[in-house]
């Protein structure tokens, strides 16, 4: 099928983009970045925006900036730009582990990190990363710029805190200190397919004990979420297989699954266990 008709805008500045959003918010104006979800949704007439605001011509939005402790990812940065070489150390390794699972090569060249956040699919690897590392979203409207914690941004299945007249300008992620161990595991039916279940595990070890453990799960829940019970169990403990097994069990037991299903709970447990065990 072909998309319904819309008016197309290609603003050259952010000010123009948010002004267009504000002017046409009532007519379902939507921001177009990579379009790898929006365009097929329009082709299937699941989305019928009255106005498309293409932000690809705005200079600077395709930039990644990296400081010692944080990465800022502009709204037009493609998945393909966020592999293991995008940052040194454990943070770069984690990016590489995740990027590899995002759709297929010709989708990764076009789809964007921030678009994935705006779409807020429960199976989004980047949403999972934002929750795991306490990332923040930089949102802009004609009223100004605000920063939104990932936890507050992701409201539920494909639902975010972004207002109709707001657009994501960038995502901010704290990087990980040297020595942090990072692991990721995903179950999908085939390469590049949506995650059925996935988990990120990161932790450091000081004097033989786990510090700063972070466990986050996605796919099986309506939005990516942390596993506080598993993190509490890991904190201060000595890493060993029995501990990881128990932490994975805790994470699965307390996970608010999209439906009560022993198979999904088992996938959750195994995802967390493999992310923890594989963390290096």
């Amino acid at each position: 099928m072909k998309s319904s008709s819309f008016e197309y805008h290609a603003p050259k500045t952010l000010d123009d983009a948010v002004a267009l959003l504000a002017r046409h918010a009532e007519e379902e104006a939507r921001v177009l970045a990579g379009g790898q979800t929006m365009v097929p949704a329009m082709a299937m007439r699941l989305a019928r925006p009255g106005h498309l605001i293409d932000i690809n011509a705005i200079p600077g939005l395709d930039q990644i900036s990296l400081t010692d402790h944080a990465m800022r990812i502009g709204a037009c940065v493609r998945h393909a730009a966020l592999g293991a070489t995008a940052a040194p150390g454990p943070f770069g390794r984690l990016l590489g582990l995740l990027q590899h699972h995002i759709a297929h090569l010709p989708i990764r060249t076009r789809g964007t990190f921030c678009g994935s956040l705006a779409n807020a699919d429960a199976a989004s690897e980047w949403c999972l990363l934002m929750v795991a590392l306490d990332g923040r979203i930089e949102a802009r409207s004609t009223a100004g710029t605000r920063m939104i914690d990932a936890e507050d941004f992701l409201l539920g299945y494909m639902t975010t805190a972004l207002a109709p007249e707001e657009m994501i300008v960038a995502a901010h992620l704290p990087t990980l200190p040297p020595g942090t161990r990072v692991g990721f595991h995903e179950f999908a039916r085939r390469a590049g397919d949506f995650a059925q279940s996935m988990a990120i595990a990161t932790y450091a070890v000081a004097q033989g004990r786990i510090t700063a453990p972070r466990i986050a799960i996605g796919g099986v829940v309506s939005r990516a979420r942390r596993c506080p019970e598993a993190e509490a169990l890991l904190h201060g403990a000595t890493p060993d297989p029995a501990l990881f097994q128990e932490a994975a069990r805790q994470a699965a037991t307390h996970a608010p699954l999209v439906e009560e299903d022993p198979y999904l709970r088992s996938l959750t447990e195994t995802s967390v266990l493999r992310a923890l065990t594989g963390a290096a």
Binding site: M1, K2, Y8, A10, G35, Q36, V39, P40, A43, M44, D54, A80, H104, L105, P106, I107, T109, R110
Partner: peptide, 25 residues
């Protein structure tokens, strides 16, 4: 026409992309 089958893949500035998921403009 929804990006799943890969038949319409072309090169844009040397990078493989789905021609069905880009507008001509």
């Amino acid at each position: 026409e929804t990006g799943l089958c890969g038949a319409c893949t072309i090169l844009v500035d040397g990078r493989a992309m789905r021609a069905c998921l880009m507008l001509a403009v």
